[in-house]
């Protein structure tokens, strides 16, 4: 298992508040990793840094076999390099159909003129059908994404992530607001995806994480507090202190 993403010594400050403090995390491929931590621990900011939304004050973020430096690349370039992200709040394009949403995310050339001259083909249609099957939205392809239920939107977004065919998936609270049955399905989706690629999940729900059954990283005040199996970290005294409060 070689490191796909190497975050080392990253710090970022917002108006004097240190959101990330000398953070180092390494993700392999394939791997399923859960990141937990109390509010304000810097989980979302960590994703912001990896995806290029926030520029850190110091540190390195290296990517892939060639150890490409992700800092200084634009969000879209990072996404094209193979990092997909799902936001905490489901953000699908509500005015467009499920099919259009998926088609937009499909792995294809992204340049404006390529897209302008793009002709849909059998392969693309097949892939969309396959993805729709996987996220359980086969019957909803022509529907407006805005008309879907909350859980369906979450899946659609995961489906869009998968359509991008990324090497690393960053998933922010995928199970929030889902019914238990829907959670089950989501867990399944994520573990399956993690068989061929790296998946990082941010989650609050311990039950959900337990079901993912993977390595866990605990963040606190912008840096790694503990790392290991869920059982291992939950027995860590520091983690208990942080979570239960002193």
């Amino acid at each position: 298992m070689s490191a796909l993403l190497e975050v080392s010594g990253v710090s970022v400050t917002f108006d004097g508040f240190r959101a990330i403090n000398n953070l180092s995390i390494s993700i392999g491929e394939p791997e399923l990793r859960a990141v937990i931590g109390p509010n304000g621990a810097g989980k979302t900011t960590f994703m912001d840094i990896v995806t290029g939304k926030t520029k850190p004050d110091e540190g390195r973020v290296l990517w892939g076999e060639a150890s490409q430096n992700l800092l200084g690349m634009s969000e879209s370039a990072i996404a094209r390099a193979g990092i997909g992200r799902k936001f905490q709040k489901p953000t699908v394009f509500e005015d467009q159909t499920v099919r259009e949403n998926l088609a937009m995310a499909l792995r294809n050339k992204r340049g404006p003129f390529d897209v302008l001259l793009y002709k849909t083909n059998r392969h693309a249609r097949a892939r969309i059908a396959e993805l729709a099957e996987e996220i359980g939205l086969s019957d909803h392809l022509p529907r407006r994404a805005g008309d879907l239920s909350h859980g369906q939107k979450q899946w659609l977004e995961i489906g869009m992530l998968l359509a991008q065919d990324p090497r690393l998936l960053l998933v922010d609270e995928p199970a929030a607001g889902m019914t238990p049955a829907e959670r089950e399905h989501t867990t399944e989706l994520l573990t399956r995806a993690a068989q061929t690629r790296a998946v990082v999940v941010i989650e609050h729900d311990m039950e959900f994480i337990r079901r993912l059954n993977c390595k866990v990283t605990v963040l606190h005040e912008g840096s790694v507090l503990a790392e290991g199996s869920l059982d291992h970290v939950t027995q860590n005294q520091q983690v208990i202190d942080v979570y239960l409060g002193r």
């Binding site: 879209s76 005015d95 937009m104 793009y118 991008q164």
Partner: peptide, 26 residues
Amino acid sequence: GKFGSVVRAIRDNENRVRFLGYHVES
């Protein structure tokens, strides 16, 4: 078609389009 789809997506949420890998500015 797809170009229109991307353009409308930019109108609705250009950041999300960026994370899909599209260079919004172009």
